[in-house]
Nucleic acid binder design. Sequence first.
DNA 1: CTTTATGCCGCGATTACCTCA
DNA 2: AATGAGGTAATCGCGGCATAA
Length: 255
Amino acid sequence: MGFDDICSSGLGLGLGWNVKQENFSQSDLQQKKRKSLVRDEHFFPSLTLGPSSDDDARKAHGDDQQASSVTALSSFSNSSVKKEGDVEFDRVSSRVGDEDYEGCHRKKLRLTKYQSAILEDSFKEHTTLCPKQKQALAAKLDLRPRQVEVWFQNRRARTKLKQTEVDCELLKKCCETLTEENKRLQEELQELKSWKLTASYCMQLPAAATLTMCPSCERVANGGDGPPATTTSIPFTIGPKSHFINSLSHPSAAC
DNA sequence: CTTTATGCCGCGATTACCTCA
DNA sequence: AATGAGGTAATCGCGGCATAA
């Protein structure tokens, strides 16, 4: 990968979040729309009591993992009942969740392959969900909407983390390339400086003694012995940079 | 029009659980 | 069997935004 490749990769030094921020700004728009939706629509969380539905769902999905007791930890509580029918119901109940978990530590749900696959597919389509989509997805996967919401949040976080790592790597490479370039330019500058010294020294000497012949292209400058066939009337002048620098350091490689 | 209160949502940081080597 | 590491679901707290009063 060359320097140009790296620098044209669209990566800015501000850590290129362009794509993602686009996504988020879109989601912001969605969010704004959503907020107006929320007030007009009523979502009714699907409450299940006991683990049976979970088991059924897992059987139906051909799950190979043990059914967790998540449903048993569902948002069924006094506070939940009070807020049933409220849009905020699921979120509020889940945030009060720890108290609902019968005073025990939280259990951890392990998503099935089927659930993960569906969620992944959905994430590919849109990284954020409107309440309707969330509700539908939750119903489809037999999860609580809050769980779907959490999954999307964590998924976004993982994506961002991965992207950060990728950007970090690119920046590292970019830094290495620039360091190399800097080193090369420093060396070139040194050569130019040393040539300048040499040139100013030569200018102080008689032309005949110094300007004889370019060792590479064999062009003779004013030597004073009459013009040979290949002689030009142009004094030995500075050639193109590369020629000149090379002829100083590696005379044989010049021209 | 401005201010204040409220609700909703996403995010970052963190915790807690689970699996696997 | 014990254990440490890694993955990830779940929680907490905060800030931004929209809306109603």
